[in-house]
Write a protein that binds this DNA or RNA. Structure first.
Length: 632
RNA sequence: GCCCUUGUAGCUCAGUUGGCAGAGCACAUCCAUGGUAAGGAUGAGGUCAACGGUUCGAUUCCGUUCGAGGGCUCCA
């Protein structure tokens, strides 16, 4: 019953390196002895022009990454005697290895490890696979407590060891044949991080070294370049530079302050959101920010989600909680009266601000916050209506993403987990309606078997941003829990009380997080309809300040966001400033423009339009805004 | 919360084995009247995150606290 707001990071990959590998995951297979089969002879990365250098192409990149992790482990063990090794898998963009080190490692130590790795690679050591019994394995790794623990969990007869150079590791494989198959220029050690042994915070904290690794130097460089681009677009950086928002640790971390320019964006976005909802059959609600504890007991939040909630405040002997979700309030409105099947479906939306406790270390700019506004809605309908309703909400969502300029969208369909509530029949109809809706929209999708919440199946949509990263935004979730717990009913044609279906959906997800993603995808260069400042009027010299003022005033009168730049900076500096602020249109005016009543137009990307009459420019601007044009 | 890194002017950062605190941008004043990405001069601006310790002396060394950044999902 807790529709999870999309995580801060794209879920296929994470964190700062949150860029999905540009080529996705490649299918490959292994022969029984653990060698890659011929299917993986070349990578899609190499496309139609595979290198015929078999040594670098004979192994899938996952194998290369994993083998590199062994090489890194060898280097670390050699450089830091006494190191205990844990695990070192291949991951989305590279690999990591977890160690227990005799002394803390500094980032400055990484180059030395890299150097040692290159030496090992150059030494051309073969990877040898040996099968051993459990008893033998325990003996061999007697000095490695983490390996011992792993071995204890394994079945006898299935244990293999890989050895290269001076390093021996418990490993399922497969590996490349020899370190010569690894390219010294296609990996880079990335960072040092703490990680609990087996992800359990009660177990020892190990030191994890992350690395990027690819099949070729070109791919590594492309990846590093994308990371660099991502860093330039970082929402925290642009938020400061463009004066969009701030956070105030002294007043509470993870809470967003929207400055005038950010607020202008938000108001335009929300106005559009409301219009679209009214046009598409929704009614909008406003509900309180806090409610008594019985609400959250009934909904189940206090049972399942308490650690995600802000602690209660006491008032008149009652406990009030800040809402982590809007649904119980919407349900109260529903239950305020008796509903006939003729009233359904109800589509009730709210830009509802919720508060959730996120661990301090998880907070991140606009992406992961403690207070945020969901563009939430609940659809309450009869079983007969559910299929159409799901198809409709999906269509609506895709239309909104299209307007916002996101065209690459992928669906993830999550089905019933082991522990769940609700009758099987409901799960079946629900899943069927999700499946049909996705098919109707021709959306590429992946199944996530058993990945649904216990209270119902769902579709999540991931959108791809301008630099190829995927972000989970929209979520459409069935809820078989709350209608039951709150005893929601409607009266059917036969006069019987029946249980309605309820669907939670958030299209943009959270307004804060959407803003973050949008800032990063557009690099702060918003389309004109969302730009906080649409027009900067720049006089060539202060002699023309009056004309500049007149032009700006006339634009403002008609509702455009325009201002004249009248400081004593030179024109060049004003252009530079306006461009740096990503103002879409700069109107440069001097004697010629004043005398002819025209404006000379410079776009923020440096292009220039033919000078036009002010009236003509207004029409031009009006049209771009009305169409929500993505082009200037 | 835990691991590593980090905290100096509004912003971005420098600060050399401990000796009166620095730059660029932004801001203010003055000069400069200009045609598509930075004109010039002057000035103001800091209890060097906070607290404690070592020292004749701490922004600098040590400790604690608070905040920020990267991680803590990928399972031999």
């Amino acid at each position: 019953m807790v529709p999870r707001i999309p995580r801060a990071y794209p879920t296929l990959s994470a964190g700062k390196g949150s860029l999905q590998g540009p080529y996705g995951v490649r299918p490959y297979a292994y022969t029984p002895d653990g060698r890659p089969r011929a299917v993986a002879l070349w990578t899609r990365a190499a496309g139609a022009f595979p290198h015929f250098r078999s040594t670098c192409m004979a192994h899938p990149v996952e194998t290369v990454r994993h083998s590199l992790s062994h090489v890194m482990a060898e280097a670390v063990v050699k450089l830091y005697p006494g190191t205990k090794v844990a695990i070192g898998p291949a991951i989305a963009d590279g690999f990591y290895y977890d160690f227990q080190l005799p002394a803390p490692l500094q980032p400055e130590d990484l180059p030395a490890i890299e150097k040692e790795m290159r030496r090992i690679i150059a030494a051309n050591a073969a990877f040898k696979r040996v099968e051993v019994s459990k008893a033998e394995a325990l003996k061999i790794f007697a000095d490695e407590p983490f390996k011992v623990e792993l071995i204890e969990g394994l079945e006898d007869g299935s244990i293999s060891i890989y050895e290269q150079g001076s390093f021996r590791d418990l490993c399922r494989g497969p590996h490349v044949d020899s370190t010569r198959d690894l390219r010294p220029d296609s990996f880079k050690l990335r960072s040092i991080a703490g990680a609990y042994w087996r992800g359990d915070e009660k177990r020892p904290m190990l030191t994890r070294i992350y690395a990027y690794a690819f099949s070729s130097k070109a791919e590594l460089e492309a990846h590093l370049k994308m990371l660099e681009e991502a860093e330039k677009r970082d929402n925290r950086k642009l938020g400061k530079e463009l004066d969009l928002f701030s956070t105030h640790e002294e007043a509470g971390p993870g809470l967003i302050y929207w400055h005038p320019k950010g607020a202008r964006f938000r108001v335009e976005l929300e106005n559009w959101w409301r219009d679209e909802h009214y046009k598409n059959g929704y009614e909008l609600l406003f509900t309180p920010h806090i409610g008594k504890s019985w609400l959250w007991e009934t909904s189940g939040h206090l049972g399942f989600y308490k650690e995600g909630m802000y602690p209660p405040m006491e008032m008149d002997g009652d406990k009030y909680y800040a809402k982590p979700m809007n649904c119980p309030f919407h349900i109260l409105i529903y239950k305020n009266g008796v509903h006939s099947y003729r009233d359904l479906p109800l589509r009730w939306g709210e830009l509802g601000t919720v508060y959730r406790y996120e661990r301090a270390g998880a907070l991140h700019g606009l992406m992961r916050v403690r207070g945020f506004t969901q563009d939430d809605a609940h659809i309450i309908c009869t079983p007969e209506q559910i299929e159409d309703e799901i198809a409709e909400v999906l269509r609506f969502s895709l239309a909104m993403w299209k307007t916002l300029g996101f065209n690459e969208i992928k669906a993830y369909l999550a089905t019933k987990p082991k522990d769940s509530v609700g009758e099987q029949e409901r799960w079946d109809t629900a899943l069927e309606s999700l499946r049909k809706a996705v098919a109707k929209e021709n959306l590429p999708y992946e199944m996530d078997e058993g990945g649904g919440a216990f209270y119902g199946p769902k579709i999540d949509l991931k959108v791809k941003d301008a630099i190829g990263r995927e972000w989970q935004m929209t979520t459409i979730q069935f809820d078989f829990n709350e209608p039951e717990r709150f005893d929601m009913t409607y009266v059917d044609a036969d006069g019987q009380k029946k249980r309605p279906y309820m669907v939670h959906r958030a299209l943009l997800g959270s307004i804060e997080r959407f803003f973050g993603v949008y800032i990063e995808s557009t690099a702060g260069a918003f389309p004109v309809w969302l730009s906080p400042e649409q027009v900067a009027v720049i006089p060539v010299g202060l002699d023309f300040a009056d004309y500049a003022k007149d032009v700006a005033a006339e634009l403002k009168r008609e509702g455009f966001r325009a201002s004249a730049m009248l400081s004593d900076d030179r024109m060049n500096a004003k252009i530079r400033n306006a461009q740096g602020q990503k103002v879409p249109y700069m109107l440069v005016v001097g004697a010629k423009e004043r005398d002819e009543g025209t404006v000379s137009i410079r776009l923020r990307d440096g292009r220039q339009l033919e000078p036009m009459a002010l009236a003509g420019f207004k029409d031009y601007l009006r049209d771009k805004i009305a169409r929500k044009s993505l082009e200037l």
